[in-house]
Simulated scan of single mutants.
Amino acid sequence: MSPSQTTVPAHSENPATPARRRGDLILFLVIAFGMSWACWGTAIGLGGPATPGTPTYTPFLLGAFGPLAGALVIRIRRRRRREPVPEHAVRFRPAALLWAPLLMVAASGAVLGAAVIGHAAGDTALSWSDSRDVMQDMGGPAAFLVSMIISGPLSEEPGWRGTAYPRMRATMGRFRIALVLGVIWAVWHLPLFFVDGTVQHDLGLATPGGVLFAAGNIPMAMLVTCAYDRAGVLASIAVHFAVNTTMILLDVHTPATQALIMGCQIVLIAVLLLTGRRPATGTTPAAPAHPARTPAQV
């Protein structure tokens, strides 16, 4: 053996190579889009409103779990390859039990504040009558809240934030990821504009409301990313749930209020970035060993 060469010991866990990270990301997106679009395509084909008790509701609900299915596949692959948790993954910490409700209140407050400002400026008045109808259609307040947690926050965040974000973070900054992942997120939602009974269908695709919904995925992606960096997937689920639920309960649909919500979210994002600490990573970097050097590197 040449003196310039060293033997690299075999470890039980090997770091993921850039090629593997890219492969995992591609596989995740294929599963997320494939499962969701197949289910939502079935819902479109069946027709009718996607409300409980209708044939359309089951494929509509299952479609939301595409990102979660992709996340589970990637996690199983990582464990079989005995790779460590990605460096930028935020593991669960007890502090998440405190941060999650605080961030949830802040995210909900941003939506409520935007709606109040919009009303003061002459936009549609806030009304709880439609909220009661929505909850009644979903089977009552309890069923409504469970549905809002499962369909969206719980079915998406382990994928978009818990799986895609840490792997993208290895080569990209948070702002670039928010832009890229926000665009991907908006495209992923496209079939819902053609499923009767969804918020997207009510907004319409080629309308100011539909365009603002798509654009709003970018600040929303940054907001839930800030929550994830603070306290992991639990916090991103809480923020996603808070925004979705508050918007539906307030019946937010006018372009003016949608634009104000984006503005308030940007302000909240700035506050979180300015007050945040360096996020804890999922792995503890090992002490660097003397790397093997080739003659060209000596």
Rank of each mutant, 00 (worst) to 15 (best):
H253W: 01
R82P: 00
E156P: 08
R80H: 00
I149H: 11
A10N: 10
I117Y: 00
D123H: 08
T42V: 09
I74S: 07
G232T: 07
M1D: 06
P55N: 08
A114P: 06
M1A: 09
T207E: 15
L192D: 07
T51S: 07
G210Q: 15
W40V: 03
P18Q: 14
F175P: 12
F144I: 12
G140V: 07
G41W: 01
A287M: 03
V298I: 02
P291W: 00
G210P: 14
T6G: 11
A206R: 15
R176T: 13
A286F: 04
R277M: 12
G162I: 10
G232Q: 02
A289F: 05
M262R: 09
V146K: 03
A106I: 03
G53Q: 05
L97P: 09
V243G: 02
G210R: 14
G41L: 06
F144Q: 10
L98E: 08
C39D: 04
L98F: 03
F28P: 07
G182I: 11
A214W: 12
L192K: 10
P158H: 12
V252L: 06
L145T: 13
V183W: 11
A50W: 02
S108K: 01
A186K: 09
D196T: 12
Y228D: 12
E157Y: 13
G197R: 14
G109A: 05
G63M: 03
V116M: 03
R230G: 05
A110E: 02
T6V: 02
P255C: 06
P94I: 04
F144T: 06
A114F: 01
A16N: 12
V146Y: 00
D137P: 14
A95N: 12
A227F: 01
V8T: 10
D251W: 05
I184Q: 14
L68Y: 00
F92N: 07
R20K: 12
P219D: 03
